[in-house]
Amino acid sequence: MALQASLANDYTTSINRVTWSPDGFLFGVAYSKCMVHIYSYYGGDDIRNHLELEAHVGSVNDLAFSYPNKWLCVVTCGEDKSIKVWNVVTGAKQYCFEGHEAPVYSMCPHHKESIQYIFSIATDGKIKAWLYDNMGSRVDYDAPGHSSTVMSYNADGDRLFSCGTNKEGESYLVEWVETEGAIKRTYHGLGKSSTGVVQFDIIKNRFLAAGDEFMVKFWDMNNDSLLTSTNADGGLLASPCIRFNKEGVLLAVSTSDNSIKILANSFGIELLRTTKKHILLESLLGVF
C-alpha cells in the first residue's frame, strides 16, 4: 500500500516488465523504483498479492522465472549493475551476481540438459553468463553495436536470438553461436535511427518479429532478408512493444494512444471468433 500511494504521487515511476511463471500460477511485475511484486493467479479475476521484494537500488529493469535446483525462483536485474535470484516462496535472496560496469538492461535464463545459466546484458552492450554459484561470470561477449539488447531462445531452445539498439539509434537483430559468442546471422531491414530500444519476439521455431519505424516487421529465421511488414492500419509507436500468444497466432502491439492492437492470422481470427469477447477484440483487429 505504501508503494501504491507513492506511485500515485510520482508520475515518473513506471512498470518495466510483467512476466508469467512457466506454470501460469504466478506473474511478476518489475517497477522503475526498486520494487518487484509477485502475484498469484487463480483464474478469472482472482489475483492475490503473493510477495513484495525491495530488489535493487534504483530501477528494476527486468525479471524472469527459472528453476535452479528444481526450485522456482525469480531472477531480477537493475540499475545497480547486479543480477539477483530470489526464492518465490520465502522472498529470500539466493544469489547476487556482480561484475557488470553499467546498469543491467535485460536477462535470459535458460537450461541445457542439467546445466542452468543466465545471460545478462548491460546498457554498454556487454553480455555475461552466470551459473547458479558464486564463481563469477563464465563469458564476456559484446552485443552488436554495443547495444542495449534482449536475448531469447526459440521454442525448442536450440537457437538463440537477440535484438537491440545502441545510443546512436542503430538496431540489430541477430542469431548467435552461443558457445562461441559469435554472430551466426544478421537480419536486414531494421531502421538506423531508432528513438528507443527495438523490441522483438519469436513465433515458435519459424519466424521473428520486431516493432520498428511505426511498423511490425517479420523475418523467416532461416533467411536474413525482411519477409514482410505491416503498419497495422497506423497509430503504432515508433518502436512498439510486441508480444505473441503461446500459439503464435495472435500478436499484441502497443499504440501511440496508449491502447493495444491485436493482429491475427487466419488461425487467430478463428480463435477470436470462439471467445466470448470476440466483438471487443475484433474492433482492434488487423490482419497480417
Rank of each mutant, 00 (worst) to 15 (best):
C241E: 14
K217T: 03
T186D: 02
W176C: 00
E247Y: 13
M221H: 02
S162V: 10
S239C: 02
G157P: 13
D156E: 15
F161Q: 06
G181W: 08
I202E: 04
V197K: 01
L227V: 06
G189I: 01
F207V: 08
S148N: 02
T186I: 05
L190E: 02
S256V: 10
K204A: 13
G157K: 05
V174N: 10
K192H: 05
V198Y: 00
L226M: 07
L160V: 03
K246W: 10
S254T: 12
V174L: 02
G191K: 05
H146T: 12
V198P: 02
F161T: 03
N222D: 13
D158E: 13
S171F: 00
E247R: 15
T186S: 14
V216G: 03
F218C: 04
K217A: 06
L173M: 06
G235Q: 08
W219K: 08
N258T: 07
T149H: 06
D224W: 12
R159P: 03
A232I: 01
H146R: 09
G191N: 08
S171T: 00
F207W: 08
E180N: 14
L190S: 04
C241D: 12
D220V: 07
G136F: 06
R206H: 11
D233T: 13
A232R: 12
A252H: 05
I202L: 09
N205E: 04
A238F: 05
L251P: 01
I202N: 04
D233F: 11
G169S: 07
D201L: 11
E170K: 00
A210L: 07
S137Q: 08
E180F: 10
A238T: 07
L190A: 03
D142C: 09
K192A: 01
S137N: 12
M215Y: 01
D140Y: 07
K246H: 15
R185L: 11
D201S: 08
S162H: 10
I183P: 07
H188L: 14
S254L: 11
F161E: 00
K261E: 10
K204L: 15
I202Y: 08
M221A: 10
T179F: 15
D140L: 14
L208T: 08
E180C: 06
S137D: 13
F207H: 13
Q199F: 12
K246S: 15
L237D: 02
D140W: 07
T230F: 05
T186R: 12
G235V: 00
S229F: 12
G191R: 06
L173H: 05
G196N: 07
A155N: 14
E178K: 12
D140E: 15
D233R: 14
L250R: 07
N245S: 03
E213R: 01
L208Q: 00
D212G: 05
Q199K: 12
V177F: 15
T179E: 15
F200K: 02
G164Y: 03
P144D: 03
L208W: 06
E180V: 04
E170C: 08
T228M: 10
N205V: 05
S193Q: 05
K261H: 09
L173S: 01
G157F: 06
I260W: 00
I242M: 00
S147C: 09
F200W: 07
M151E: 09
S229I: 08
T195P: 02
T179S: 13
N245F: 00
V198G: 03
I203H: 07
G189W: 03
R185Y: 14
D156I: 08
Y187Q: 00
K204T: 15
S254V: 06
T186W: 05
